[in-house]
Structures are given as C-alpha cells and as structure tokens.
Computed example of a mutant assay.
Amino acid sequence: MTALLEIDLGAIAANWRQLAAMHGGETAGVVKANAYGLGMAEIAPALAKAGCKTFFAAQLEEAVNLRRLLPAARIATLNGLFPHAAADFFAHDITPVLSSLRDVELWHAEAAGLGRSLPCMLHLDVGMNRLGLTARDLARLRETPALLAGLRIDYVLAHLLASDVPDHDANPAQLRRFAEAAAQFPGAKRSLANSSGMFLGPDFQTDLARPGAALYGLNPIPGRANPMRSVVRLSAPILQIREVAAGESVGYNATWRAARASRIATIGVGYADGYHRALSNAAHAYFDDTPVPLVGRVSMDLATFDVTDVPANPGDPLLLLGPHHGADALAAEAGTIGYEILTALGRRYQRRYIGA
C-alpha cells in the first residue's frame, strides 16, 4: 500500500493571486528545486494560467525544462553563468542572473560574439555574502563601463537574509544598501522581496517580487497565523497494528518503551521518503482529527505510531501532512524548516494533483 501525496494546484494559484494583489509591482513565481519538491511540470503551467509571467529557477537545466513548458514566459536562473554555458542560455531564451564579474564578462563576450544586446539581471550582494556583485565589483564596473556593453539590464536584485524576522536589524540595513547599489543602474528595475519580504511593508515593494515558499503554503510570517492556503496533504495507510505489552520497546535501539499496553501502527513511510529520522519520538500524525504520536525511531521505509486511543485498523490512513499539521509544524518537530520538508518529499509517493 502506497502513501498518497496530494498537491492542490488551485491553492497554489490562489496563493500567487493573493500575493500579486498585495504587491505594488509584478509578482514572479520561484519554481526552483522542482517547485520546492512539489512538481514544476504541473505547478508552473498552473501559475502561468493564474497570470504569472516571470519565473525563477536556480540552474540552467531547470530553466531549460521550464522553457519547454512555458514558451512565452520570462525565465531567469539565480545561480549565475559558468564557462561554455552562455550559448545555451541564449539558445533557450533564458535570462541569467549575473552574480560575479566573471558572469558579466562571459555574458558580455556572448553579446559581442552575437553582435546584439542580451538581457540579464544583476545580483547585488548587500549582506548575504553568498552570491552577488560586491561593492568592489561594482566599483570595477564603474571604472570599466565597457564590461556592460551589450548587456540589457532588466532588473537588479538582492536577497534578504532575515525577512522572516520583521524587526531584524538586517532588514532596513539591506534595504538601504540595496537602494545605494541599485542607483548605479538607473535604467534597471528593482527586485528585492521574497515571500517574507513581501510582508515587511511598502518600502520593500519593488518592481518585481519573487515569492517561493509562500506559494507552496509555508508561513511567510512565522509566529503569526499563516495567511497562505494549505497546499499539501500526505497520508499513508496503516500496514499493521501490533499489540505491545507495557515495558516492551518499539523500533531500533529501543528508544521508546510502552508505559501501558499499547496498539502500535506501522506505516510504509521512512527517511528514504523524506520523512526525516530526526522526527523519531517527536512527530505526530493524525487519525481523523486526533493526533497520534510517533514512537520509536523512523527507519528507512517504516514509521510507527501509538494508536491506542483511536479506533484505527490496518488499511486506515494516517495523515502526516495536512491543513492542521503542515510542513512548518512537521519541520518544528524535526528541528528544521518547512522548505526542507517539502523539498525532501520522496519519489515513492503516489502523487495526485487536484484543483487544476
């Protein structure tokens, strides 16, 4: 019996429309990592149908697959260029986000070789210290403006490092640094806000917002009620129920022992399916509307739950993810973030797309 993963395309589209309505400029859709693990091939067309015209992937291969789905969309990649790839970006009409002087030089050379102007976006590093043009790089571009010849800079963008913490000092500091750096490119539009950044107020409402997590039901404002619709429902049928006497253990290393005579349900989901081992003795599933605790270690293919207090039987489903126990809640039990829960969802689930 296979676990069932239901993904609500209608809810994803509704989340995008909600975010677009609250944003002053254009709203893109971030579909990197196979649309956060939920299926780019199904989700990207649903977003396009809802009105989304600009999409972000991380890598060229993702973008090429996306281009096959959406021939007319603007598609950009966040991870920059690398040697010998510029021709592929041009061939598939992919806009690179240039994150270093090397990226700029590669795209400049491609434009010169083709004898035409090529679109791009410039990533400005204003505090994340991962990718992006540094203050020193920007100084070099001021000193050598010929490097930008043949480049049509559609957007300058930056990444917020603490947008999910509204009162974090980094937010106004990054906003200020972004404005200062972006002023070097007066003809380019600006893109700053991610999902959480869209909730930081009007100062963060630039020309293009780039929501990702919020589209997929993750809470962009932690600590407050989630304004986004639930998108994912994961259920698994009970394979077997074992009668366990008081004092007996369950699972590897005997990390849980029954304090009373107990009924233990085993489901066919484990860490090979993205149901993390860190959830051992910490997570909950739901039988109808009643939470049932995970007991013992999560193993590669199996997990065990205490169903002593509910009328569960073999074949009945346990709900692992759903409206009242979403990816953020499961992530808290695993000591991680909802992003990791979604992107880790395994290939063995039966996937069903609803709400299209």
Rank of each mutant, 00 (worst) to 15 (best):
I94M: 03
A135F: 04
G113H: 13
P119A: 13
V104L: 04
A146Y: 02
H123Q: 15
G127Q: 13
R142Y: 00
H108Q: 15
T95Q: 09
R136I: 11
S100Q: 08
L141C: 07
M121Q: 13
G132N: 10
R130N: 03
R102H: 11
D125Y: 02
A135I: 11
T95I: 15
H123N: 14
I94R: 03
D103T: 10
A111V: 08
L133A: 09
V97E: 07
N129K: 13
L98V: 05
T134L: 07
A111P: 02
T95P: 00
G115S: 10
M121S: 06
G115K: 12
T95K: 02
A139N: 12
L141E: 06
L147V: 08
H123P: 02
T144D: 10
G132S: 10
E143R: 03
E105S: 15
E143V: 04
R116V: 13
L114Q: 14
R116W: 00
T95S: 04
S117V: 09
T134E: 08
L148F: 02
L131M: 12
V126F: 04
D93F: 03
H92P: 01
L101N: 05
H123V: 08
A146Q: 14
A146L: 11
L106V: 10
H108K: 05
W107S: 12
S100T: 11
A111C: 06
L101M: 11
T134C: 09
A139V: 00
L124V: 14
A146R: 14
L101T: 09
E143W: 05
P145I: 00
P96Y: 06
L138E: 12
A146I: 08
S117W: 08
P145M: 04
E110Q: 15
L133Q: 06
P119Y: 09
L138I: 09
C120L: 12
H92N: 14
M121P: 00
T144P: 01
D103P: 08
N129G: 07
V104W: 02
H123T: 08
V104I: 15
S100R: 07
E110L: 14
A139M: 10
R102Y: 06
S117D: 14
D93M: 03
V126W: 02
A149H: 06
C120G: 12
G127T: 06
A111Y: 01
S99H: 05
L98N: 11
V104S: 10
